[in-house]
Simulated assay, not measured.
Amino acid sequence: MKRIFSIVFATVALLSIAAPVNARGRQPQQQAQPDFQVDDSPSFSNFFSNFGTSSGSGPIPRTVVSIDTRYAPGTIIVNTAERRLYLVQSNGQALRYGIGVGRDGFRWGGVHRITAKKEWPSWTPPSQMIARRPDLPRHMEGGIDNPLGARAMYLGSTLYRIHGSNEPETIGQAVSSGCFRMTNDDVTDLYNRVSVGATVIVKN
């Protein structure tokens, strides 16, 4: 019996010091750390209540994350590949929002500034969009049925905006003509936090 116990004990000891392997028998490689990481520490448990808002009913809730401190507070970073938008806060923190992005052929990157903000904006489709979609209205007043949603932030001299949407189910998808869609709840939250002149970095 003592001999059996010794064998079992030795086997357990060997397993405890062996390198872990995955299902295919290979040692897992160390993964590179992403630019943005969710901070799930207990100190963030009441973060949204401190801001006075909740994540709402959107398909992708707002989340507090850690961020590279090279970015100044108030900077907006759009990560098209992730389909996420980050608003840089102080102390290496950021608010992360889910967004809809441009479909294939309509994605872009660059650095701009918010040059205007509008509540319940009207919508005049540009001529390029009319050429692709002759059925679109030539102008639509702001309102709940307007595709720009509750708020819009205009990016420099481009045709692009960060705006709300009357199609919240498209958040997290690549369906737009280059603009960045958010739920009306999220875009209102962002709108209230940023100012005209804020830097917007779009990573394609």
Rank of each mutant, 00 (worst) to 15 (best):
K2F: 05
I4T: 13
I7W: 11
A10L: 15
V12K: 00
L14M: 14
L15P: 15
I17G: 05
A19C: 09
A19S: 12
N22S: 08
A23P: 00
R24M: 06
R24K: 13
Q27T: 14
Q29P: 00
D35S: 11
V38S: 09
V38H: 09
F44C: 13
N46P: 05
F47C: 05
F48Q: 01
S49L: 07
N50S: 13
S55Y: 15
S57H: 08
P61V: 01
T63D: 07
T63C: 08
R70H: 11
P73R: 07
I76Q: 06
N79K: 12
A81C: 05
R83S: 14
L85G: 02
Q89C: 05
N91I: 03
N91P: 00
G92A: 10
Q93I: 05
I99A: 06
G100S: 14
G100R: 03
G100A: 15
G102K: 01
G102S: 04
R103V: 09
F106Q: 00
R107M: 08
G110K: 09
H112W: 10
H112R: 13
H112Y: 12
A116F: 12
P121Y: 04
P125N: 14
S127D: 15
I130A: 12
R132D: 14
D135R: 06
P137L: 08
P137W: 07
G142E: 09
D145G: 11
D145C: 00
L148V: 06
L148H: 08
A150F: 02
Y154R: 01
R161F: 02
I162V: 12
H163R: 03
G164N: 09
G164I: 04
E167A: 10
I171M: 05
G172H: 01
Q173A: 08
A174P: 03
S176F: 05
G178Q: 11
T183G: 04
N184K: 05
D185R: 09
N192G: 15
R193T: 04
V196Y: 12
V196G: 08
T199G: 03
N204F: 06
